[in-house]
């Protein structure tokens, strides 16, 4: 069989593998309670929005969304700001320690969470920052910095030095050179790094579970993981919350696929 003839098959196998399980969950969120437990399974939902309504009303879904949005946005902004300063210095000034620092960041990104979780919890406890936005954001900034700095560094390295040098000769300070010349040129890199940090933080569960024990402050992953229901799981509501939690990410991925792939393979440091 020719390669061309195989094309539809690739679509079915690879597309099906990647989409079908999640699609099943999305369809579940639109089913009626009877459809969810039906044997044989019913594929086409009745497009009943009751589970979304219930997730919003009875399970505080809106609160989780708000918390996730606040935490992910703050973390992304701050870690891109701090990360771009560092990445700029690390790529522009060839100093003995910059190489070491980049390697250190890479090593840190490999740490298993449990290896630092206890002491991080204790630091935040001492500061009185458990169950606060600043507590979770501070921890998340530290967790995202390796990712942010590495992606930004790979982008900054490709920018021409000449423009910047000319500006410096013309009497710009380093800060002006960074703000007026490097940053606009590096905008695509900043954007890519922002998307990846945002997705990473939006999905983070381990530290959110430890730091945010107050339901009023919990993020979406914690809310979805701890969905109450000991004997009968509220699958419709869980599926509805999951669909809402994932929707922004799927939109981002479909729109910015190229950037994400480039950022990930440049940094290749974080799943």
């Amino acid at each position: 069989m020719s390669r061309k003839a195989l094309q539809p098959l690739w679509w079915v196998v690879i597309g099906g593998f990647s989409l079908v399980p999640f699609l099943w969950f999305v369809l579940t969120s639109w089913k009626s309670p009877a459809q969810i437990t039906a044997i044989p399974p019913e594929i086409v939902p009745e497009f009943h929005w009751g589970f979304y309504d219930s997730a919003l009303r009875n399970y505080g879904l809106l609160r989780y969304i708000r918390n996730s949005a606040i935490v992910a946005t703050l973390t992304t902004l701050i870690s891109i700001l701090i990360g771009s300063l560092a990445a700029y210095a690390l790529t522009r000034f060839r100093l003995s320690w910059t190489r070491f620092y980049l390697m250190l960041l890479l090593a840190i990104s490999m740490f298993p969470q449990i290896a630092i979780a206890g002491p991080v919890w204790r630091i935040l406890n001492t500061l009185g920052w458990l169950n606060t936005y600043q507590g979770i954001v501070a921890a998340y900034i530290a967790l995202s910095l390796p990712l942010a700095v590495w992606i930004l560094a790979t982008f900054f390295k490709e920018l021409p030095y000449e423009v910047e040098e000319a500006a410096l000769v013309d009497g710009c300070t380093w800060v002006q050179a960074l703000w007026k010349i490097v940053l606009p040129l590096a905008a695509p890199g900043l954007f890519t790094a922002s998307i990846l940090v945002f997705i990473h933080v939006w999905n983070e569960f381990f530290f959110a579970l430890l730091i945010l024990t107050n339901p009023a402050l919990q993020t979406l992953p914690v809310g979805i993981a701890l969905f109450p229901g000991e004997y009968t799981m509220p699958w419709g509501e869980i599926a509805a919350a999951s669909t809402i939690a994932t929707l922004p990410l799927i939109v981002l991925t479909l729109i910015f696929q190229r950037r994400i792939v480039r950022g990930l393979s440049a940094g290749a440091i974080k799943g």
Partner: peptide, 11 residues
Amino acid sequence: WAIPTVVSSQM
């Protein structure tokens, strides 16, 4: 890859 791990776990 983009789906939160918690969501894929529930799924």
